[in-house]
Design a binder for these strands. Structure first.
Lengths: 346, 346
DNA sequence: TTTTAGCACTTGATACATTTGAGTGCTAAC
DNA sequence: GTTAGCACTCAAATGTATCAAGTGCTAAAA
């Protein structure tokens, strides 16, 4: 158990280190501490904190920096989210103040705003699509044996993809198939649609088409693409930071980790807190040893939950970041709700 | 005028410097030279070359490196494109060996192949769209006052964008408008379409619609997007190179230069040679002082010309790069021609 | 028992001198 | 025109001294 004084010292070490980037020595620390004790006392306390593994030295005679365990303790017990600057708030509001034709544009914009506000890498994810309901499937002939398949869901996501049509498909049976799809599947959630696609539908189609596989491939493809979570990342450049990335190779690996949608999904996982910070070992990849990931979920009622996240060095100014994300959650949820209620009414 | 021996020496300096990255001294140079002269003779020749501004020293007693002017001379008179490795050729062929639904996928893949083969940044541009002809314009209702506008051209490019439909547009007049567009404009080149859009069409539409502006906005938007040259860039990471980029800020500026489609268009301009190398001052931006840009055009007959390019440090192995691009031009043109002839016939 | 003053010790950073090696330019002889 | 030889230059590596910031420990004070 930590004494009151040790708590204050740990908290101050975290603050000073994130501010200055330099290891914190007993003298510097003393200037900032509210109580008046001698530097020797502080040193003694620091020895205790070090014994507990909460802080560490970079070399024998250096000042101390928080260890991963120390940050963990700080985040679990000490951090106090700070309020958001009026100027930051203004940036958020003006940046969101445009009309969007697609929800994905809002999500992409979110990542952009967050990364510019924080100078870290921002990741954002739209409301979950699994529970979104299919509102329509279209095939638009483009000529030259090509069609564009378009899938629309009730939460505003639109997925499209272009296919070369297999020769055996004539436009008549295609139209029939589409009618069946729309009759049978509209209104179901995407997960349900995926299930039905593996049971009822194929048989149903055989009544009207000779070989439904070609068509089912097309539909299945677009469906898969639509049901997949798609992360928007902004501020990748900000990963370049001598404190976290040692060499160019590491940077390249990091980039490919982040560009890979699946890897990113694995990294972020399923946060269970509203705002959650993971760092060091808690992150899946060895590449992220010196990183910290703050995830925040947001809630848009019937339309499900989404997520925004910041990826940066372990020594982030957590109070500010957590405060900021907390406000941003609300603003984003508001904007999305707004979008759902007003779309098309301009 | 340079003597035979000076030419050999200049060429060798370029080769050794690109290989080693180190300034080349008289001794090292001597080992590689075919004729047997003394190092003093070589030194004398180097003084001449330096007087002509073709090579330079990094400091008073250092070896020599080619100057920008030296590279220019080398490229104009000395470079001999080398053949392409069998392995490189195999990579190109296997990477292209898939079926593509859209021409843009081929173009994007080109950039990917080139950057992975060269470890430089690769840029690619599809066949010119100005002369492409409009083959169709569609509006697909998605529900909730939203439509997707789709524009197809005869060279396989498909552009789509989603709009919220202005309230005053009912579906009936929309259909009429689309019929007019397709009747009047299909078969014309995009440049012609853009012209007509500013003259005949608005008046023509007023016969059938009350306020055509809403509709014209949508069409104009997609048209503009379709007619715009879109560059595909791959291997941006490779710009990180201590030889060319000194600090992180410069890197960020470079990235934003490359991400900005317009800036990129300005940078690349209109190459008049089949394969052209520009370096130093010849590039528009100050940021690119230490870079070299190799552009190569490719020709797909009726479907116009496109471009591929490599951006890297001035000290690239030009023989290999030029040889590679020359082969790649052909392969890409072949692949695209292939796409046009076989699309839809699988 | 806790706190503090004092001191010896460690370490990274900085500055400076010295050496080494790769290279040059020049001169005089071939 | 070419070459051997030599004095000279400079960056990079190496060595040395000093400084500042910090620590741990001990013994005395509170």
């Amino acid at each position: 158990m930590l004494t009151k004084r040790q708590l204050v010292i740990l908290k101050e070490i975290v603050r000073l280190y994130t501010e200055s980037g330099q290891p914190v020595g007993s003298k510097k620390l003393l200037d900032q501490l509210p109580m008046h004790v001698s530097s020797a006392t502080v040193r003694n306390e620091m020895v205790h904190l070090e014994d507990m593994g909460l802080i560490e030295k970079t070399h024998l005679s250096s000042g101390r920096i928080p260890s991963t365990k120390g940050y963990r303790y700080y985040l679990d017990h000490l951090v106090e989210p700070s309020g958001v600057d009026a100027s930051d708030l203004a940036v958020i509001e003006t940046s969101f103040d445009q009309s969007y034709h697609q929800i994905d544009q809002i999500i992409a914009q979110s990542a952009k705003i967050l990364s510019s506000l924080t100078s870290y890498t921002a990741i954002s994810l739209g409301p979950e699509l699994r529970d979104a309901r299919l509102t329509g499937f279209r095939l638009v002939p483009l000529g030259d044996h090509q069609v564009m398949a378009i899938l629309v869901t009730d939460n505003g996501a639109v997925e499209n993809q272009i296919f070369s049509v297999p020769q055996e498909l004539d436009s008549e049976s295609l139209e029939k198939a589409i009618r069946i799809i729309n009759d049978q599947l509209v209104g179901l959630s995407l997960t349900e649609v995926i299930q039905k696609l593996q049971s009822d539908i194929p048989q149903l189609l055989t009544h009207y088409m000779i070989t439904p596989t070609g068509f089912l491939n097309i539909f299945g493809n677009v469906l898969k693409k639509a049901a997949q979570e798609r992360f928007y990342v902004d501020g990748k450049m900000n990963l370049i930071n001598p404190a976290t990335v040692k060499n160019v190779d590491q940077l390249k690996s990091l980039y490919s980790l982040i560009d890979q949608n699946d890897d990113l999904a694995k990294l972020i996982g399923v946060p269970d807190q509203t705002i959650e910070v993971r760092l060091g070992d808690e992150l899946t990849s060895d590449l992220l040893r010196n990183f910290s990931l703050i995830t925040a979920t947001y809630d848009v009622g019937d339309h499900g939950k989404g997520m925004i996240a910041l990826l940066g060095p372990t020594s982030m100014p957590y109070s500010r970041m957590i405060g900021l994300l907390d406000v941003f959650r609300e603003e984003l949820a508001k904007k999305i709700t707004d979008y759902y209620t007003h779309r098309g009414d301009e």
